[in-house]
Simulated assay, not measured.
Amino acid sequence: MIDLLLALWPLFALIVGGYALRRWDFPGDAFWPAAERLNYFILFPALLFSSLASAPLDNPALPRLAMAVMFGLGLAWLALLLAKRLCGWPAGRFGAITQGILRFNTYLGLAAVASLFGKEGLTLAALMLALMVPTVNVMSVWALTAERGVSLRSLLLPVLKNPLIFACVAGALVNLSGLGLPGGTDRLLGLLAAASLPLGLLCVGAALRPQELAGEVPTLAWNCALRLLAMPLLAFAAARIVGLPPMESGVLVLFFALPTAPTAYVLTRQLGGDSHLMAGIITLQTLLAAGSLLLVLLMLGAA
Rank of each mutant, 00 (worst) to 15 (best):
S115T: 05
I281Q: 09
P10C: 04
N162G: 02
L234I: 12
G301A: 12
I42T: 12
A239Q: 07
A20R: 09
A172D: 10
A167H: 01
G18D: 03
L293Q: 08
A230Y: 05
P56E: 02
A193R: 06
L173T: 07
I2R: 14
F255T: 07
E216S: 11
Y40E: 05
P218L: 02
F166C: 13
P259F: 03
I281F: 03
L5W: 13
C168E: 06
V138S: 09
A79S: 14
L244Y: 07
N162D: 08
F71S: 15
L233H: 06
P210E: 12
R93F: 06
F166A: 15
L8M: 09
L52Q: 05
Q285V: 10
A146V: 12
L75F: 14
F71E: 13
L122N: 03
I101N: 09
M1N: 14
R209M: 01
P182E: 03
L202M: 03
A61S: 14
R209K: 12
E212S: 15
M70P: 00
L80Q: 11
G184D: 02
G74M: 04
E120M: 06
R22M: 07
M132Q: 08
A214I: 00
L199H: 08
R103Q: 12
P90K: 10
I241E: 01
R37P: 11
L81G: 15
L65I: 11
A96G: 11
Q99N: 07
L208N: 01
Y265A: 06
Q211V: 01
G190M: 11
T123N: 12
L157I: 05
P262C: 00
L298I: 14
L267Q: 07
I15T: 05
G18N: 04
A194Y: 00
D274S: 06
I282N: 01
G280E: 02
R227Y: 07
L144C: 04
A111L: 10
P45D: 01
L288S: 01
L48K: 06
V159W: 11
L297S: 10
